[in-house]
Amino acid sequence: MPRPHPPDITGILTGLDDGPVPAEAGEALFEAVYEELRRIARRLMNGQRPDHTLQPTALVHEAYLKLADSRRVPWQGRAHFMRVAARAMRQILINHARDRSALKRGGAWQRVTLDEDVAGRPDRNLELLELDDALQRLASRDARMAQVVELKVFAGMKVREVAHVLGVSPRTVDNDWKVARLWLTDEMKRGGD
């Protein structure tokens, strides 16, 4: 999409209480976030030590700081950003998984292990794609539940943060998350009907 000038992310985020985000501004925001996150993620790929546990929130936070002037953005703006970022992260990962799936099986090394489910070791990329599918099906039944999952799984947020972003109580988020896990796992393992 051609962009004559970089979008004013801060402006978009601060203008939220004036009403819903206009379509173009929303698109622009998403694109910007997407780009930034992808940049960060790729940086990780290159130099990452396996010892470190990765925190998606760190990425999202870094992107936020980069893109918006946090001093001027009200909390609704930040919450909105997070929702967008989670969606963007999901997109990045799904796209990446699709690419990897296509390339699969060549040069994969075997690890010797006595793990009992050697045969059933999950193919991570495949799982990601299955999750995406199942999540879409969930969204058509219960939008908020799907949002909770997106924020938790792709933006790595804690229950309290999710509650804040969505404007509901932590209890609600907790219940949604617990039920969603059961539902999604069952859907994924059954292969989906």
Binding site: L59, V153, R181, T185
Partner: peptide
């Protein structure tokens, strides 16, 4: 739980 749910994709 499907592992991807717990670890996220990252």
């Amino acid at each position: 739980d499907a592992s991807v749910l717990l670890t996220g994709g990252l």
